[in-house]
Structures are given as C-alpha cells and as structure tokens.
C-alpha cells in the first residue's frame, strides 16, 4: 500500500510539471507569433480569446479533428513512431530542470549530461520521420537537420564544459548555486552568445531553419505529416525551444536566483525568476526569427565547425588556465 501511494505521489509530481509545460508550450507559440507580428507591424493572432490567447488551443483542436494521412509507400511503424519520439524526448528532459532550491523532479548527479543526451537523441525523431516518409523532400530535410544538429551539439558540449569548469559538478542545482555571487553570463559572455546561436541551430529555429526551408524543401521532414502527428512534431519543437531557453538561463543567467540578492527581490519564488528568464530568452529567439534572413547551408556548417568549435575550445583553455593560475578551481 505504501509502495502504491509513493507511486501515486510520483505521478502527481510528474503531472504537476508536465501540464504547466504543455500549457506554456501552447502559450509560447502564441507569444512567438505575436512578437513576430509586432516586428512586422502586424497584429498577429488577436481574435480567439482575450488578446488571442486561446489561438493555440483553437489550432490544437483543429489538428485533433483533422484526418491523419499515412502515405501508402511509407514505413508505417517508424512513420508513426517519429513524432511520438520527438515529443517524448522534448518533455522527458524537463525532469531535471530545477525550479527552485530542491524544487526539482529528479535531482540526479549527472543532470547536465542527461539533458545533453536527451537533446542529442532528438535527432532521431527527425531522421525517422524523414526516412519513413519515403519521399524526397522529407529525406533531404532530415539529412540536413541531422547534420546540423550533430554539428552544433559539439560546440554546445564544449560550452557546457566551460561552465562545468567553473562549477565542479554536473548537477544542475549545483550549477545554479555556484552563480550566487556572479552569474556566468559575465565572465563567460562570449560563450553565452555562442550558446544562444548554437541553441538556435540546435532547435532548427530561424535563421537556421534549413530543415524546413519552405522555399526549397516544402516543409522538410514534416511534409508528409498531417493532423495530430504534425501537431506533435510542432509541440515537440516548441518544447525543445523552451528547454534550450531553460538550459541557457540555468547555465548562464543564474536559474532560479533573483538578479539582485536583496530583501524584496528574494521574496519572489525562484520559479518565477526562472520563468521570467526563460521568457526573456524566448523573446530574443522570436526577435531573431523576425529579423534575420536564413543562412545558406554551407555557411551554416562553416559557422559551426570552423568558427564556433575553435572559439569555444580556445575559451575552454583560457577558462581552465585562469582558474588554475589564480587557484580558483572548485574543490569538492
């Protein structure tokens, strides 16, 4: 009986995390379209509900009631599995994100590696979708996307090493606590910029949205998908974007810590600060989408391998030498 109740407690905790994440994914789609529209002097979605807030709900309903079309020549099992994998992986990574002191679903020792592993698995949703569609545009989109994600993961990994050198632990809560005196965005500012750009590429956001470049590839790997399966790809993509924003705010912007460590600011619960930082990064994502033209594919690869990778490697050496010379290496 005790065992069962503990299981129920865990399920309750998971739902308490999952439902807000799903709702905020729907809201973030609205915010994205709204910011995009305001940059272009349009109104954006403003009809359904107050300020158009319920637009995503309406879209979701539309997707649910649409017919799911499975191409006759596709590999059906993998075709159906692909959006499921994308969405599951995007949601599963939220388990280790700390929303406050000891407010975390799974406080594991290798939290950052877990997030890195899950985000590197995200490639499979796209490759499977592209391959199983058995059509040229999805396949080209999938190959592009996989190459892009694998290349930018390398530089993200090395940027994470930079942060870990200053922390001395792979636990996400430890990473946040280590920023109590100074957020890592100040000493590691160049790395923050590179991380931001790499996370744009990692989540296939514009200007790096080559996998779904509509002018040449229709919709990339999503071309053959319809109805709920398309919506799942879409939800997974936005959940991934939110996750990268959360990761950025945990690694560089001090996670749940308040910007000023004084009385009235520390009253605000940590989760609010974290959500505020995530929103800030997401609005930056949306502004980039609205202002920057799409990269060419060879330029994208050159940026990843020839500029970001050496830069972040040099910065690792710099950080390590600085910490070693001034005897600041974390010891625990």
């Amino acid at each position: 009986m005790e065992y069962l109740s503990s299981i129920f407690q865990e399920v309750y905790k998971i739902l308490f995390l999952l439902i807000p994440v799903l709702v905020s994914v729907a809201m973030i789609v609205w915010l994205d379209r709204r910011v995009w529209a305001f940059v272009q002097k349009r109104q954006g979605p403003n009809v359904v509900g107050p300020f158009g807030l319920l637009q995503s709900l309406a879209d979701a309903l539309k997707y649910i009631f649409k017919e799911i079309i499975i191409p006759a020549s596709s590999n059906k099992v993998i075709f159906i599995l692909a959006p499921i994998i994308t969405m599951t992986l995007a949601l599963v990574a939220w388990a280790v994100i700390p929303f406050g002191e000891s407010q975390v679903l799974a406080d594991i020792n290798v939290g950052i590696l877990y997030i890195f592993a899950v985000s590197s698995l995200g490639v499979y949703g796209i490759i499977m979708g592209g391959w199983a569609s058995n059509s040229k545009y999805p396949f080209l989109g999938a190959i592009r996307s996989a190459a892009q994600m694998v290349s930018y993961e390398v530089s993200i990994g090395i940027i994470i090493i930079n942060v870990l050198l200053c922390v001395g632990s792979l636990n996400l809560s430890d990473i946040v606590v280590a920023q109590k005196e100074m957020w890592f965005v100040i000493p590691l500012f160049p790395m923050f910029i590179i991380f931001f750009i790499s996370s744009l590429a990692e989540t296939n956001r514009p200007p790096f949205d080559l996998p779904e470049a509509e002018a040449e590839l229709v919709a990339g790997y999503q071309t053959e998908y319809s109805g709920m399966m398309y919506a799942m790809f879409w939800l997974g993509e936005y959940a991934n974007i939110l996750l990268m924003c959360a990761l950025g705010s945990i690694l560089f912007l001090g996670g749940w810590l308040s910007p000023i460590d004084l009385y009235p600011f520390t009253l605000v619960p940590g989760a609010v600060w974290l959500i505020f930082k995530i929103l800030l990064l997401f609005i930056l994502f949306a502004l980039v989408k609205a202002t920057v033209p799409r990269y060419r594919y060879d330029q994208l690869m050159r940026l990843g391998w020839k500029i970001f990778l050496p830069l972040s490697l040099i910065y690792v050496i710099l950080t390590a030498s600085y910490l070693f010379y001034f005897n600041l290496l974390p010891t625990n």
Binding site: N109, L113, S120, E153, L170
Partner: peptide, 16 residues
C-alpha cells in the same frame, strides 16, 4: 556517468 556518456557518444553520434 558511463550510462550518459554511452547515450551521448554511441546513440547521439556514432549511430547517427
């Protein structure tokens, strides 16, 4: 640690 590295290296890179 080994499990995560296994995921990152083998699943995330080699199998791709």
């Amino acid at each position: 640690f080994l499990g995560m590295i296994m995921l990152i290296v083998y699943v995330g890179a080699v199998a791709v």
